[in-house]
Nucleic acid binder design. Sequence first.
DNA 1: CCGGTCGATGGTAGCGCTACCAAAAGACCA
DNA 2: TGGTCTTTTGGTAGCGCTACCATCGACCGG
Lengths: 345, 345
Amino acid sequence: MGPRRSLIIRKRAPLRAATLADVAKIAGVSPMTASRALNQAHLVATDKAERVRAAAARLAYVPNRIAGGLASQRSRLVIAVVPGTLNPVFADLIHALREELLRSGYQLFLGLSDYDMPAEDELVETTIGHRPDGIVLTGVVHSPQLRFRLAGARIPVVETWDLTPTPIDMLVGFSNEKVGASAAEHLLRRGSRKPALIVADDHRAQARGAGFAAAAAERGIAIAGRVAVRAPTTLGMGRDGLARLLTADPRIDAVFCSSDQLATGVLFEAAARGIRVPERLAVMGFGDLSGSAHTHPSLTTVAVDGARIGREAARLLLERLAAPEAARRSRIVDVGSRVVARESA
Amino acid sequence: MGPRRSLIIRKRAPLRAATLADVAKIAGVSPMTASRALNQAHLVATDKAERVRAAAARLAYVPNRIAGGLASQRSRLVIAVVPGTLNPVFADLIHALREELLRSGYQLFLGLSDYDMPAEDELVETTIGHRPDGIVLTGVVHSPQLRFRLAGARIPVVETWDLTPTPIDMLVGFSNEKVGASAAEHLLRRGSRKPALIVADDHRAQARGAGFAAAAAERGIAIAGRVAVRAPTTLGMGRDGLARLLTADPRIDAVFCSSDQLATGVLFEAAARGIRVPERLAVMGFGDLSGSAHTHPSLTTVAVDGARIGREAARLLLERLAAPEAARRSRIVDVGSRVVARESA
DNA sequence: CCGGTCGATGGTAGCGCTACCAAAAGACCA
DNA sequence: TGGTCTTTTGGTAGCGCTACCATCGACCGG
């Protein structure tokens, strides 16, 4: 037994939060019964369960999930790792993921990674350290060291928002190359002969840019201008990007941006310069943000069903959690993407 | 001792993640020494520390922070609760908070709350359950039950993004009423006589709207139109909002929106209708989002230094963590807000 | 009226790690 | 060389909770 804190001091201001033992003592039952009353009430006589609940309420008792998780080896917690500055593109994914997990009694926490690798490594380490029942990653993991750690942790992992033939475990995503390719297709079919790119410097945006260039080249069209910007992207970068593209070559007739934020900026810059969109300049983005349908002109973009990714990720995770043994075959889901043709292209 | 798993099976595919005991055994030291080698390397002979590190790397060992936290009663973790759908207004706050905490060796996790109360209660319960070293709340807590729980948990709490005379513990925020009031002041000084409002239905947005109306009334000006929208706000709601305001009263001469997203939507709707901004219609928003300086016309808005809130919140938390005893006086920091006058008003 | 069964309850033994203390091994001095 | 001080190491005892098993009446049919 450790030292008992003086009852006099404890009276008004307990130094430590209440524990299950405190609750049990007040309710006049054993800790075991108190635990059951709170978690599996049907196994306990109703009057005792009631007394336990009352005692818990009186003490402002909140179960220590750290201890519970350690004892039961299940945390009922899923941690999602999302890049950087709360990028709204992921909003639907996270929202749907959270919804589905909640429905099955799992909580979701988010870890924010920077766009740079070392910090991401550290974050994933911490994430594993908390031994969640599942991990959802936004983006696939490239660092071999991290993949090793993640695989060694024996925690179900879902990578999202990208496709790769070799996921660590499970994968729900789409091809960023195809996003770029279908944008190129759309723009060229509408008659563009001098398309330009504004692309952020993260992996996935780069892949979209590469996909665009490849598809254009296949049709004998060269990229007429290219601006690289730093992730995360902003509207201002889009404005500035168009300005720079026009300085380099005023005859470009279309711009594909790696995000809708950039594209919206391009729209504003075009408006400020009196450049008619889409007649003189076609503009496309990626992400189909909540606002993109309501810009003026409304933005043509490549949409991904983020909510579906979230739902599928949750489904894979929950299935695995329900039947861990059935899980050796790795699962890959491609949700695809589609061009949403609106006014700007 | 529990049952030992067959060595034959363990060989290639360990069923459980490696533990500190595994590492210690391989390195040929006691678990205690292994623990020190990993956490306080200076207390251990260099050769042994090296052996431990090598063993850890070989086993893809990631320390179980759940167990460590339980044993040491410190998790080196802060959990921030943010409302709903990754609203970019909070991006700066979260980013700065994370940065500061990281600098001191604390990790940050995010819990997403819905805009509705019951779900928020549950989330805060879970959050407390994980016994973080600190909790940062975006918005003040109103539910008395939750306040009781939070106070009982003996975890340092920082409420943010709002002011109240009675915080649970610490508070860093600004007055949403004043935000509205200074917007009103700005608009009226510029000559508006028929200002209108587009305001979301969450607490804080409501407070901004109320502040606006009160300040206008004080100057003898009545609100000429008012549209309520559901949080979280989007550009589309802004467009739609202006349309509805104009239908009700075409002579309104200014619009104050409870967010920059809404205001940007208003800008687009005005552009689509050929309404000149700010000559015919002045537009103001709130939040000074990263894009707001680059709309066309650029958006006049009320800015809050989100990064400063994050930094102050981190500072308060870290001070408390460093000297828990010195903490009985509760601390309140008001970071204020300011009008950023650009082209739209 | 007794063995068998079942639901309710309690006791025990950890989960994986670290705080704390004791012991051992060097380092150093007279 | 013996003693003192300082490192370095290991053992023990939990952190707060739950899995698991033992126990104990109550209740059943025979």
